[in-house]
């Protein structure tokens, strides 16, 4: 992505450290295969947008990167640590919640439906994990929570309950909540899909700002404009596999895969 015509990060992309590494990932829901061998590297400060038709497995992939859906085969590593499983001889056992929390410590997640806790104010939503996970004192947690809310432009809404906020504001609180944990990477699962069209912009604006500041992000999205403008890498998925991946120019201007062409045609027709 370019800022004033300058590349955002001077380092060649391929030299940057890998934050999330996905190797031969498979996932089945019972007998139904959903992911059929995914390989993907997400590097420091990279913005990866995952696009594809409904049911292509893109949300499942993202949830596997967070181990909210346990993957069936292959591996996901977060900064070199195996996510979700521990190897015991031949067998692979599920990690306990403490081990899992440790590997996931630097992974933030933003959901389609915000998933704020409705009985807590915006400030309490952001501050809770600062208290109980980062073990900050109450005043320090409140200070950092207020900072995070200001960062997403909601410094004046700290005392509001989620029901008193618009969808766009709720999603920004959810971003602040993830941000306050100082994650190394944030996963966004269709962050604007549940929003009224006029509220999409404010959320994308916050995400744009994070990208400019160098946050590593993996974003499942239907916002092709955002992907074209902000992504370093666009990944096109269909039927549980990655069919094409490349720079926004390669994907949007010069697609090679037929199904990607078809997908982009459908999208272009629909947006007129």
């Amino acid at each position: 992505m370019a800022l004033n015509g300058q590349p955002r990060v001077e380092l060649a992309a391929s030299d940057r450290e890998v934050v999330i590494e996905v190797e031969e990932l498979t996932k089945t829901f019972g007998p139904v295969p959903v992911l059929n061998g995914i390989d993907l590297k997400i590097r420091r400060s990279e913005v990866v947008c995952i696009i594809g038709p409904s049911g292509s497995g893109k949300s499942t992939l993202l949830r596997c990167l967070a181990f909210l859906d346990p993957y069936t085969g292959g591996r996901v590593s977060i900064e070199g640590q195996l996510l979700g499983y521990k190897q015991q001889g031949e067998r692979r056992l599920m990690q306990g919640h403490r081990e899992l929390a440790k590997v996931r410590r630097n992974v933030g997640m933003v959901f389609q439906h915000f998933n704020l806790w409705p009985h807590m104010t915006a400030l309490e939503n952001v501050a809770l994990a600062l208290r109980v996970t980062r073990k900050l004192k109450a005043d320090q947690a409140e200070r950092e929570a207020r900072e995070a809310l200001s960062k997403v432009g909601l410094g004046d809404k700290a005392g509001n309950y989620p029901s008193q906020l618009s969808g766009g504001q709720q999603q920004r609180v959810a971003i602040a909540r993830a941000l306050a944990m100082k994650p190394h990477v944030i996963l966004f699962d269709e962050p604007t899909s549940a929003l009224d069209p006029e509220l999409v912009g404010e959320v994308l604006g916050v995400m744009r700002q994070l990208a400019v500041e160098g946050m590593t992000m993996a974003i499942v999205t239907h916002e092709m404009g955002f992907a074209a403008q902000m992504a370093d890498t666009v990944v096109f998925m269909d039927r549980g596999v990655i069919l094409e991946q490349g720079s926004p120019d390669e994907i949007f201007k010069n697609p090679r895969n037929d199904r990607l062409k078809q997908f982009l045609d459908t999208w272009r027709t629909r947006s007129f």
């Binding site: 909210l68 998933n115 704020l116 994990a129």
Partner: peptide
Amino acid sequence: EAAQMLGI
């Protein structure tokens, strides 16, 4: 899930 992702 949101809470789990925050290490709670």
